[in-house]
Simulated scan of single mutants.
Amino acid sequence: MIEKEITVTIENGLHARPAADFVKKVNQYKSKVELMIGDRRINAKSILQLMSVAIMEGQTIKVMTDGEDEKDALAFIDSFLQSGKES
């Protein structure tokens, strides 16, 4: 398992369109991917759970990945939350 705190710099946070793009890509990884937002732990592969926490620009969240491609999943998430796209 890998954990990392990431400050979201994607403009306007994870509103509907970037959240959908994020979930679509995260679901391609085999690893379990969870986010801690405050005291809430959510499944990052669920659009409903992701939208329920309203991740905003400037917010710091903890990302936890666990599985065979956990490093790749974390690298994608780190890049996406800071730019809005995969680098």
Rank of each mutant, 00 (worst) to 15 (best):
L50N: 03
K62P: 01
R40C: 05
A44C: 07
V23I: 13
V26Y: 01
T65D: 05
Y29E: 00
V63K: 06
V63T: 04
E34Q: 13
K25T: 07
T65S: 04
N43C: 08
D21A: 14
K24F: 08
A54W: 04
A20M: 15
S52P: 06
A19R: 10
R40H: 12
P18H: 02
A44S: 14
T65H: 06
N43T: 02
T60Q: 13
K25E: 07
A54G: 08
S52H: 03
N43R: 04
T60I: 07
A73P: 07
R17C: 06
L50C: 04
K71D: 14
T60S: 15
I55Y: 09
G58S: 13
I37Q: 12
S46T: 08
K30H: 10
R17L: 10
V33A: 06
S46G: 09
M51F: 12
V33H: 09
D72L: 13
I55T: 06
G58A: 11
V23W: 01
G58V: 04
G67Q: 10
K62Q: 11
Q49G: 04
E57I: 07
G58N: 15
K62G: 01
K25N: 02
E34P: 02
V23S: 08
A16Q: 12
K30A: 09
Q49D: 13
Q28S: 14
K32A: 09
V33Y: 07
A44R: 09
V53L: 10
